[in-house]
């Protein structure tokens, strides 16, 4: 005890040490080994050796660019759809929720309490060939009589949208809730129409939530492989499916690691570009 009294500056480091050690050992060091593995050559049978095997990257890109771009496309569409659904929903709860706000927020996060795989399987059920959604869509003519929903890209994108929607809705709610209501009233007192007040006051002030929500939705969506596996076919497989099967089924570690590094790199670049383009300026204003 006296030691700590004499060396008070040490206290924060002592408090931080266990957590940081764990994160360095099991988050940072693994990323290092991921990069090393991505440059290794070999097979499970004969073992792997580090040979600066850059061909892992070129081969991976040549063979799997389709799945790579599909992942970005599906994640992008899902993010936009989630934003279009979440914004009015978060707005409704933040501005009209009143005493029910907490209960309504609970409804938003309720899907998280059903195991991810189980709720995705529920969508398998809902969209199945015998499901009522397909019946309704056939009746109103949106889907051909012999059409299906399950095992299509629509089903995969719908599943991704659903599974990550709370990541979009919650930050949107937080930023809408924080807006000073008197600013909107001031705009309306100064003869702005409600539409104009929304576009010039509410929307810009909620941009931090839009940015946070978009990133929080897009990142897990781009790496997902569960929706494509359970709701789609190999024609809908995303980069996550390739990485998963290369690591765990066909044990092609070099290329699997190369693809993982590429995913991480693309996402880091996106975060940097996104916050620079949209973030700093709007956030400061």
């Amino acid at each position: 005890m006296t030691f700590f009294h004499r060396h008070r500056w040490l206290t924060p480091y002592v408090l931080l040490a266990p957590a940081l050690a764990w994160l360095v050992l099991f988050f940072v060091v693994p990323l290092f080994w991921l990069s090393i593995t991505s440059l290794q050559e070999g097979t499970v049978q004969v073992g792997y050796t580090f040979t600066w095997a850059w061909e892992n990257y070129s081969n991976a890109i040549r063979e799997y660019h389709t799945q790579f771009f599909r992942a970005l496309l599906y994640a992008g569409i899902a993010t936009v759809v989630a934003l279009l659904i979440s914004y009015p929903l978060a707005y409704w709860i933040a501005f009209r929720g009143g005493r029910w706000k907490n209960v309504l927020l609970l409804c938003i996060i309720a899907p998280f309490f059903v195991t991810y795989l189980i709720r995705t399987l529920a969508w398998q059920n809902i969209l199945s060939d015998n499901g009522f959604v397909l019946d309704v869509l056939k009746t109103i003519g949106l889907v051909a009589d012999d059409g299906r929903l399950l095992a299509t890209s629509t089903a995969v994108v719908a599943g991704i949208t659903y599974n990550f929607l709370p990541f979009m809705a919650l930050p949107l709610y937080v930023s809408l809730e924080q807006i000073d209501r008197s600013l909107i009233e001031a705009a309306e007192d100064l003869y702005a129409s409600s539409a104009k007040a929304f576009l010039r006051v509410t929307l810009p002030l909620s941009m931090p939530g839009v940015i946070a929500g978009t990133l929080l939705t897009f990142i897990p969506a781009a790496g997902d492989f569960i929706n494509a596996q359970l709701l789609g076919t190999p024609n809908q497989y995303m980069i996550g499916n390739v990485i998963q099967s290369k690591f765990l089924v066909i044990t092609d570690y070099g290329q699997a690691a190369a693809l993982s590094v590429l995913v991480m790199a693309v996402i880091l670049v996106l975060i940097a570009v996104y916050t620079r383009l949209l973030g700093t300026e709007r956030l400061a204003g």
Binding site: L20, P30, W33, I219, G223, Y253, S260
Partner: peptide
């Protein structure tokens, strides 16, 4: 260091840990 694991895709976290153990 605390926030990057929150933002990294799960598949990268899982895959990198596997390479560590391998």
């Amino acid at each position: 260091l605390i926030f990057i694991p929150l933002a990294a895709p799960e598949i990268v976290l899982g895959a990198s840990l596997l390479t560590l153990f391998l």
